[in-house]
Design a protein around this nucleic acid. Sequence first.
DNA 1: ATCGTAAAGTTTACGGTGTAAAGCAATCTT
DNA 2: AAGATTGCTTTACACCGTAAACTTTACGAT
Lengths: 234, 234
Amino acid sequence: MPKVRQDALRGAAIQAIKDTARHLMAEQGTAGLSVRGIAKALHLTPPALYTYFTSLDDLITALITDNFNALADTLEHARDALPVEDPVAQLEAVMNAYRQWAVDHPVDFQLNYGNPIPGYHAPREITVPAVVRSFVVIVGLIERIVQSERYAPNPPYDTIPPHLQPALRRVITEGGYPVSELALYLSVSGWGEIHGIIMLELFHHIQALVGDTATYYQEQIRRMMRAFGIRPKG
Amino acid sequence: MPKVRQDALRGAAIQAIKDTARHLMAEQGTAGLSVRGIAKALHLTPPALYTYFTSLDDLITALITDNFNALADTLEHARDALPVEDPVAQLEAVMNAYRQWAVDHPVDFQLNYGNPIPGYHAPREITVPAVVRSFVVIVGLIERIVQSERYAPNPPYDTIPPHLQPALRRVITEGGYPVSELALYLSVSGWGEIHGIIMLELFHHIQALVGDTATYYQEQIRRMMRAFGIRPKG
DNA sequence: ATCGTAAAGTTTACGGTGTAAAGCAATCTT
DNA sequence: AAGATTGCTTTACACCGTAAACTTTACGAT
């Protein structure tokens, strides 16, 4: 089956294109992402890339998908590096890994969670499942914590906003996730909070206010967990 | 002084350019922002715009500055529409106005708080003071609340993270703002939280999870205030 | 009232972008 | 060995920001 070898070659070419795209973006930001730039770096003519991607948007979508998966991999790895017996420590590690990935790959993070490319709009049916993978890591941990003795309901986060309940229930049943509505609610809340801090940091809006953003973030997620009713220490 | 009239004409031209820029962006997103597009809409040749702006970046900076001021105006207006005797209600109104402005002007909000234009980077010395104007509205209200009987310290938000204190103190003394470190800390925390929710909403990441984002936001800021130790009702 | 000047706008041009169309050469399939 | 497919090049088009030179308009001072 030479077809296999050829498919492998094609896969390698696609990988090379994505690698140089990422490399150029790392150097010059999203402005460095251009068909012609990639082609030049690969010693090809620009239209040659259209053998592998139908358009620049198509390439961007591929990059975004990879990013979401890389982020999810990182979170899962951070979770699995700690003992299952301490889900609180795992959650803290995962949230720190979330920020760390964003700080280490700012352009990629923006590509996914901002909208940095004029004219480009990510196809929902591709990005939504990819986002879910990361989110599931957080929800899974919070679910285990909520069911453990490390959790003690703490107002105002001890109840689910009534208006929110139907939506949460629908997500759980339709998605088939075996989690409680409370765990899902706390996850959404927490996600919004860490996302906000990270976005403000990425665009340099809070450095002047808080100084060291890493320790600020660290402290805030600890406090957030406490406010949620999650006890630190084992 | 005919000079005055000419300056007025020049001002009107600049305003017309900014208006059409905003109009094009509202229709086609940040991709619609182009010198040539604006020129065509105004029945001018592209280089003619360089009489009023030295570059496209220059125009973008002007738009961003206007946005920050418009947002700050909106917040101040929301604050002043309610009696001074109820700073808690004022704060809630201001935070709702913050989201409402973002929802009403999504592209403008992205232009300010995202980084949607490849190759463009906002000059810090211009944007920072503009950001401060909005932030000051929030800090001012929280300061008044903290000093009132509506505030009762509530763990874990009753203390300031030790690492954070020097930075906050420096901001207060150097900026000359007559606010307590606690008010500033709570403001930063709150800002990060509402910012995160709004960003996730703008890029359609939480709609599937929470359904009605407006009521979710509303509920979350109420809970956040309670967690901070701010009592609702008068 | 006129002249010099400055401002506003034009034309032209250069180098950049994404990508469609056609053609060529090598390789795989039968 | 013949035909089809794949990878790639050449050419071309329509867009982009903006620099340079030139023309037109309107003003301020003499």
